[in-house]
Design a protein around this nucleic acid. Sequence first.
DNA 1: GGACTAATTTGAAACGATTTCATTTGCCTG
DNA 2: CAGGCAAATGAAATCGTTTCAAATTAGTCC
Lengths: 379, 379
Amino acid sequence: MPQESCAFACRFGRIDPRRVEVPRGTLVSTLMMSPLEHAGKTVTIREVAEEAGVSVGTVSRVLNAPATVRPATLEKVRAVIDRMGFQPDPRAQNMRRRTTMTVGFIINDITNPMHSNVFKAAEAELRPRGFTLHLVNTGGEPQREAAAIDMLQRGRVDGLMMTINSEQDAECRARLATLRVPGVLLDREVPVHIDSVMTDHATGMRQAVDYLIGLGHRRIALITAGTDISPGRERKRGFVEAFANRGIPCPEDLIRARHLSAAYGQRETSTLLRLADPPTAIIAGGNQILVGVLHAIQQQGIEIGRDLSLVTCDRTDLATTYPGPLTLIDRDVEAIGRTAADLLLERMAEKSVDPPRRVVFPTTLILGHSCGPPRPRAA
Amino acid sequence: MPQESCAFACRFGRIDPRRVEVPRGTLVSTLMMSPLEHAGKTVTIREVAEEAGVSVGTVSRVLNAPATVRPATLEKVRAVIDRMGFQPDPRAQNMRRRTTMTVGFIINDITNPMHSNVFKAAEAELRPRGFTLHLVNTGGEPQREAAAIDMLQRGRVDGLMMTINSEQDAECRARLATLRVPGVLLDREVPVHIDSVMTDHATGMRQAVDYLIGLGHRRIALITAGTDISPGRERKRGFVEAFANRGIPCPEDLIRARHLSAAYGQRETSTLLRLADPPTAIIAGGNQILVGVLHAIQQQGIEIGRDLSLVTCDRTDLATTYPGPLTLIDRDVEAIGRTAADLLLERMAEKSVDPPRRVVFPTTLILGHSCGPPRPRAA
DNA sequence: GGACTAATTTGAAACGATTTCATTTGCCTG
DNA sequence: CAGGCAAATGAAATCGTTTCAAATTAGTCC
């Protein structure tokens, strides 16, 4: 019966892909190797000490301060450690040292390529220093964010890197103000004593708008995050300033700054394109928004770069690949993650409390295929 | 000086976006709120006991077995706990309970949307049960994978979910064989006593190929992972079987199964398209490979769906958005993550060792805009 | 060889909870 | 009110490591 494919009628020409409900997975029991009795009788430092004929304190020093133990003893104890396969129990170390060698990473959505790239870079910086990362995905719900901060800082991590959903949320702000471990805020601005790594979204946006104005555009639309977080606020500011600098009236009616989501991007794009005097250029202020913008545009049969100019923020597979690379406001996401990790490492090392640091990263306008001179659209 | 944009010469018409090196971020010191002396004098159970006039054992029972304590005492102690803001130190709990309420997640690349979606789903399932996740990004390096397993299972986590880079790696296999904590393998097949969550890539591929054959294609190319991991092996098997079922000779020369990367996808696509008898359809067996395939195709000025049919694996923004949705082999990634978490939860709850379970998820062929009848390409 | 100093090592006390076990308390019945 | 039983409590052990004062050993000089 090689006719399986007949079940999938070809629906060439429709936009929406057919989404067939995926049934629950099948459970198959298998028996491979024997259970193997990995009894894992853990060896303790006490047993090592007894076996080596020394005290536990000496074994501890062999591991943590080898210089203070006589070479002969050192060698003897090390041999026993290797032979018995002893490894100190991290739980006991955490307990005694009041430390965990763990950093918490609280993020809105790890699925977002910007976030996962920041995480990756931070992890790459922290791992060689012996740190492991706890990742909490909050889905942008403030109470989960607050709960995550509470849970993690209570002896679970030595430091915290995070992005919160709204800078205005009282619960989160209160937690940040009384943080018990070093912390770094990512792209968020909260009037609290804490380090932060920011991006100069305003300048990036100003450059992009200026570029579009230079091409002849006046009806430029901006769709971006809400103004309760720095990226939304700064992008909007840069947008407005670009017009002001040129002495050209800003098309306030084309600014949409509410959410960072594909759905929002799609909805607002559809609305904008139906206006009596529609935009000749759209700036997608966020990589999720871009997805929505493109979906909306596809439904209208508009060709990007010819009928409509498009600028997006952040380098994603979609932005660099969409038939031809899009013009985009880029930033070095890896450097951001690395820097956040560095700031945290410093804070965790020296307990000095004073002054909070703030690192601002620049953006770069990268020209792609998605912009051209404005072209009046026929109705 | 609104002339900032003059620095960015419009390079309309070139494919490669201009990549300007982003300078290191600017460091700005700021002083906001006063240091706040969040001394955070931690309250211990001993202090609570003394304050409430009971023993530490009673306080512990108030928290862990409220039913065994007299209502009057319960209330009294709870009041003190609230007043002093006592929360048990997780480090001490871990120590005594021989547990951490933490699960390790070892992954190749968290930047891959499939991986991050699996993680997200698993986290959503585990968090309400009180578990937090350690995420280790290995970059696919076997020694890092082995090191991660070692580090995590040694008293740092209660369970482990993971994908390894190659099922053949001796180091990793050895670790898996002697795992001391419950574990779940994701999309990997290793002859070891461990649970796994798999995808039926072979059937998905067979359907896709059969669909293309039905459209008239014979020169179909497959670019996918190496055969040292289940996805590559299974996809290749399904590919071959589809032809066998139809009694049509399989174009072995068009099978490329080595790496899961954009670079590999781009390189192989370029090569394939330059063949004397090039493929009329390409199957991108992996979301990263898709990126490379599309980049290669763009360089040739080929129109997908007309000049060349394309099928991809896994639903990503790019796959659903690339001018029109692509035909794709879909799977329920969330269900996979959720199921992996469920398997692990069961194992962690009851210590029963026997038989390893294997859940196989089906795939679904979703028809988009990217396939059509084969069209001979003019040279 | 003895005295003194410096270098090692030891043993016990944390660290902060949970858990066990013996003891006390509270309650009920006869 | 005494006796018996169940429930509640407290004291102490435990988890595995680090740390620190005290004790031991080694080394040096006369």
